[in-house]
């Protein structure tokens, strides 16, 4: 592709045969993508909770560094963070596979979003609940696990689900470090056959076919859970 527009020849070149050839690789890619998504979600859910609790820590020595770290991670590109981990960790003698590195990066990046979700969910629990727990002399630990978090969870589930969908749409970034997820599979296929159209289109449509019904499902869930 050079400056301006130029003719690339034939415009009638959709080949169902190429689609059929790609499908086995496609399903392998789906598997990797879902693996990354499941583990990445798990990391982001648990790490986010850690951040959210740290936001409420009694000392600034915890609140401020955690605040700065999460703001920094949230306001910088996942792709660059991905490269940072991929190239820098080995320099520190930490050896991970590309897939593990990618999963960690996605989980870390999105934990800064889920932390905000938890924070909003915790803030939405009425002050009276804290006071009631105090009046009953519940321990710090019991207050969180028995009173606050169970009430917050109901509110945060739909929002967390939305971030899972957002994460799904970010998994193609892992192609940048060579993880064999959907986009990378389609690139390899295209590189072998010189047919870009079919594989890339299949992958693009696949994302819409997964993301749209999931978001409909979440909207229904949200209506049911919230109030």
């Amino acid at each position: 592709m050079s400056a301006g527009t130029h003719d690339t020849g034939s415009t009638d070149n959709w080949d169902w045969g190429a689609v059929a050839d790609f499908m086995p690789h496609f399903w392998d890619g789906v598997l990797v993508t879902l693996q990354v998504l499941a583990l990445g979600s798990l990391i982001s859910f648990s790490l986010g909770l850690v951040w959210a609790l740290a936001f409420r820590a009694p000392t600034r020595l915890v609140r401020w560094p955690v605040g700065l770290l999460t703001e920094f991670v949230r306001n910088t590109p996942l792709l660059v963070q991905l490269f940072f981990l991929f190239f820098v960790l080995p320099e520190w003698n930490i050896q991970f596979s590309a897939e593990t590195t990618g999963t960690l990066a996605i989980g870390l990046h999105y934990s800064t979003y889920t932390a905000q979700v938890y924070r909003a969910g915790i803030d939405a629990v009425p002050v009276g609940q804290w006071e009631a727990a105090k009046a009953l002399s519940l321990s710090y630990r019991r207050t969180w696990t028995a009173v606050i978090l169970p009430q917050a969870v109901r509110r945060v589930v739909p929002a967390l689900g939305n971030y899972v969908i957002a994460m799904l749409k970010d998994t193609p970034l892992l192609a940048g470090i060579g993880v064999l997820e959907l986009l990378q599979r389609s690139r390899l296929e295209a590189a072998q056959t010189f047919q870009y159209t079919e594989a890339l289109t299949v992958v693009g449509v696949a994302f819409i076919l997964i993301a749209y019904p999931s978001s409909l499902l979440l909207r229904a869930l949200e209506r049911r859970l919230v109030r």
Binding site: T8, G9, V203, G204
Partner: peptide, 25 residues
Amino acid sequence: RGTSALVLMFWIFFVLPQLAGWALV
């Protein structure tokens, strides 16, 4: 909103020129 921005970018880079017969800078 359903599609991945990176996939869309690749698609516009590599597929659109083949389908449309012209390419963007």
